[in-house]
Design a protein around this nucleic acid. Structure first.
Lengths: 198, 198
DNA sequence: ACATAATAAACGACTGGTCAATTATTTTAT
DNA sequence: ATAAAATAATTGACCAGTCGTTTATTATGT
């Protein structure tokens, strides 16, 4: 099992092309053929770079986290801005990506795969859970900062409120796809600004 | 296209057996073969009772609403109990179903199908949207009652808060499946009792 | 006899995955 | 420096099985 530079570049190209398809159509509606066709690569090559379709999706999730989630998490670390404002900026940024950049169509890749596969595929379940746990931990840290700073009520535990908001975000993305409208995301941002982080 | 009693009974039997499979595995991971095998019916018969797999799923969603959602909505109509308490009872009931009866495995059928299919199948998207809209409307009515009754703060619009909570519920069910634990649902109930409907 | 209900068999297309053969690159021996 | 050997990378043809759907035929009740 070699790991030359060229090998990694081509594997990454397959991941890049395949990620979008699986993000949009899900696991079972995406065939290996769809992926190799999108990348312009012969089908036989796929199994030189990846053990299986499942292996590909786990690695695509890792690439998703690195390219989509990490940049958003960076907003939370900007110490020149107050903790509460950083959190609002973070959610504003994600809201803008899913509604404008992704046109209310695809939602979040990890949420989609979790909903479709968590019950039936442990490797995928663990991969999405790792992503979501990491994201939550980063937000919790800043909520605690905001509580220490006196910006957010300390009467409710940071972990509980973050979990609640993150769950609301997942649901809002499903509803957004269901209505083909950014309204559920906009509505959620209003609640965040006026009720949770008032 | 006949509609005798026997016809409807057998079609309903197929829906009953197939509903659970699609609820658990989703649309693309469930084959027509899986459905007819579970019902002990020859494959050819399937297309005597249903136009297509898509038609079957739309009708399975209608059956889902009638058998799963309607009994829960009845709790909201119990006028002997205060509006706020009815809402908490309603969410408590649903929490119990998904965690205990369904063992944290299957979540909500309409949410699952919405996440998987909304972007790519308009008939299914419209069917799940109809279910979710109906459920929300019933909850909104009781929230407004509670606001008139002085039990709930009127500073936030009933539609917005209900949409937010319903979205959080969807996300909590995904997280529940992802962690194989009732904790996300329990955590949400805590927030509902102590923060939203305090 | 006749319409309706029921069914097995079959359709072409597609599935995830394998594999032997071919080509490209690197290492070794002279 | 060069030929030989070894290893790595790449490929399309192919596997057995399944997909959703259609159809021709048989069974049933009137």
């Amino acid at each position: 099992m070699p790991k030359t530079l060229k090998h990694e570049i081509k594997a990454d190209y397959l991941l890049e092309k395949g990620m979008e398809i699986i993000w949009s159509r899900g696991y079972n509606a995406t065939s290996v053929n769809d992926i190799v066709k999108a990348a312009g690569v012969p089908k036989g090559s796929f199994y030189f770079y990846f053990d299986s379709k499942e292996d590909f999706v786990v690695k695509a999730l890792e690439k998703y986290f690195a390219t989509i989630s990490v940049p958003a998490l960076k907003i939370l670390q900007n110490k020149t801005i107050s903790p509460k404002q950083r959190i609002l900026d973070f959610y504003e940024f994600r809201a803008q990506v899913v509604t404008e950049e992704l046109k209310c169509k695809m939602g979040c890749m990890a949420c989609n795969l979790s909903s479709e596969m968590a019950e039936h595929n442990d490797n995928i379940r663990i991969a999405v859970n790792k992503i979501h746990t990491t994201i939550r931990q980063h937000i919790i840290e800043v909520v605690k900062e905001a509580q220490d700073y006196g910006e957010i009520d300390v009467s409710i535990k940071a972990t509980d409120i973050v979990e609640f908001i993150e769950n609301a975000g997942m649901g809002a993305m499903i509803t957004m796809k269901e209505r083909q409208s950014p309204q559920p995301i906009d509505s959620m941002m209003t609640i965040l600004r006026n009720l949770i982080f008032k």
